[in-house]
């Protein structure tokens, strides 16, 4: 179940990142899957962060999530 959801969330990131927008709030990610449990989504997002497929991006006050491949290079 967790692997299915993980794949689904990752697919969600890929779909939504096709446009110009690459960074998303966790609230937006949760809203992509209205039928799924919010905490389950947060858990798989953390797993994807551990796998370094996703990365955090922060302005200092707010934190966003993005696919690692789109993380800005210095």
């Amino acid at each position: 179940m967790s692997d299915d959801l993980k794949a689904k969330v990752l697919d969600g990131f890929r779909q939504k990142s096709m446009g110009d927008k690459k960074m998303f709030y966790i609230r937006e990610v949760v809203r992509w899957f209205p039928d799924e449990d919010r905490q389950a989504i947060q858990t798989v997002v953390k797993e994807l962060l551990d796998d370094e497929v996703l990365r955090y991006w922060s302005s200092g006050s707010s934190t966003y999530l993005m696919l690692a491949e789109f993380f800005p290079k210095e």
């Binding site: 955090y56 922060s58 200092g60």
Partner: peptide, 19 residues
């Protein structure tokens, strides 16, 4: 310019990127 890198391995906070 604020923002970007945010942490060390396993962390998503505690570092505030500034350029």
């Amino acid at each position: 310019k604020h923002g970007g890198i945010v942490g060390v391995k396993g962390y998503g906070s505690g570092v505030i990127g500034r350029y």
